[in-house]
């Protein structure tokens, strides 16, 4: 199996510079990560350890917890300077958990998308009721929870069922990024979506 750090080094060598909301720049003393919105800012708080990434990733600008790390609400105001690819990799694993590994699995041809109906069919306990989610409810729910504008930045690789694609989001939502941008991939609905499906089925209208 390919070494993950080597794969990331290879991508950076070829000009890879962006993942999610983060831009990566080559510096004399290594690599610098910052929020893409902060590209021109001079007043950023400097961090120098890959271990700083997890606390940075945990809270948004308002200090609220970010349960979904691919939500488009990465906090601003920091830059993280790291000496080598190994520390860039561990920082990215904190900012965008599993996203390096999932893309490499896709490159190896090992990533098998799982349709929403299969994910729901597997649920037990309190989430078993999600099997009663209708196709129409699923479309609305996915449009609300997964939309890149406010929901989640991942590219969706699954369908609702073999016959039914998600048609409630624009086509870009299903096309993985490439080139200098590392793709964020959703190969299977996350637990947050499953939990939201439970609320829909239960008729709970509260957000969350």
């Amino acid at each position: 199996m390919m070494d993950t750090n080597a794969a990331l080094a290879d991508w950076l060598d070829k000009g890879g510079r962006r993942i999610g909301q983060i831009v990566i720049a080559k510096k004399n003393d290594g690599w610098e990560l910052r929020h893409a919105d902060d590209a021109a800012r001079e007043d950023l708080h400097l961090f120098t350890k890959s271990a700083d990434a997890r606390p940075l990733a945990n809270l948004d600008d308002a200090g609220a917890y970010r349960a979904l790390k691919t939500a488009p609400n990465l906090r601003h105001g920091w830059r993280l300077v790291l000496p080598d690819v190994a520390s860039v990799r561990s920082a990215l694993d904190a900012f965008y958990p599993a996203m390096i590994g999932v893309q490499l699995a896709r490159e190896r041809g090992e990533l098998v998308p799982v349709n929403l109906r299969d994910t729901l069919a597997r649920q037990t306990g309190m989430y078993r009721v999600t099997q009663r989610l209708t196709d129409a409810e699923a479309q609305v729910l996915i449009a609300r929870s997964c939309c890149s504008d406010g929901g989640c930045l991942k590219t969706i690789l699954w369908r609702i069922s073999p016959e039914l694609p998600v048609n409630s989001l624009p086509a870009e939502k299903f096309t993985a990024r490439g080139g200098d941008e590392w793709p964020l991939l959703c190969h299977e609905a996350c637990n947050i979506l499953v939990a939201a499906a439970r609320k829909v089925v239960k008729g709970d209208t509260k957000e969350g």
Binding site: M2, A67, K69, D93, A98, L104, C190, I192
Partner: peptide, 18 residues
């Protein structure tokens, strides 16, 4: 994690050992 990422459905893709 069950409720966070990496999820149980993602983590084995991150593993490089047999």
């Amino acid at each position: 994690f069950w409720k966070e990422e990496p999820s149980l459905r993602q983590v084995l893709h991150c593993v490089t050992k047999r």
